[in-house]
Amino acid sequence: MSVEEDKPQNLDIPEHLEYSEEHVWVDQSVEPAIIGVTEYAVSQLGDLVFIDMPEVGTRVEAGDEILELESSKAVEPLISPVAGVIRYVNQGAADDPSVVNNDPYGEGWIVKIELDDDEPELLDADAYAAMISK
């Protein structure tokens, strides 16, 4: 996602999650793992108006575009930071994308994915915070 010049302040970056450079979070503490977009991404995109969810059962590789997030400002791809098979999509977020704006780390999750065994290269909360503050 494109990064604007203004630097967001006081964004929530939960410690228990891992992050990609494309502003996607992954919670590997549960199975299937949960994927969503960060509060930073939401702040850059503005109010989401449409999320084009993938089909359950879709296989994705790390680096694949798995869906598009459409906001009042732009249409941005969500790039999967992990490889696996999508097991659930958040139909609630598809029906009402504002859920993602209001609660990106909770009710605003995007997909649940059964991970492959490979270890994805993800950032911890401190490294992600450092990246977005540059």
Score class of each variant (00 low, 15 high):
Glu5His: 15
Gly36Trp: 02
Tyr88Cys: 05
Glu4Lys: 10
Glu76Leu: 04
Arg87Val: 14
Ala83Gly: 14
Pro77Leu: 11
Gln9Gly: 09
Trp109Glu: 04
Met131Gly: 00
Ile86Asn: 12
Glu68Ala: 15
Ala127His: 04
Glu21Ala: 11
Tyr19Met: 09
Met131Leu: 12
Phe50Asn: 13
Gly57His: 07
Gly46Trp: 08
Ala41Gly: 11
Val99Phe: 09
Tyr105Pro: 02
Glu119Ser: 14
Leu69Asp: 04
Val89Gln: 05
Gly57Cys: 05
Glu76Met: 03
Ile51Gly: 02
Asp117Ile: 15
Pro104Phe: 03
Asp117Gly: 14
Gln9Lys: 07
Glu76Gly: 05
Met53Glu: 08
Ser29Cys: 01
Pro8Thr: 08
Val89Trp: 00
Met53Trp: 06
Leu67Cys: 15
Asn101Arg: 08
Glu114Trp: 08
Leu69His: 07
Glu39Tyr: 13
Ile79Thr: 11
Asp47Gln: 12
Ile79Leu: 05
Tyr105Trp: 02
Leu78Pro: 08
Leu69Lys: 06
Thr58Gly: 11
Asp96Pro: 09
Ser20Met: 09
Ser29Tyr: 01
Ile113Asn: 00
Gly108Ile: 06
Tyr40Asn: 10
Leu123Cys: 14
Pro8Asn: 12
Gly63Tyr: 15
Val42Ser: 09
Gln91Cys: 15
Ala129Trp: 06
Val99Lys: 11
Pro120Arg: 01
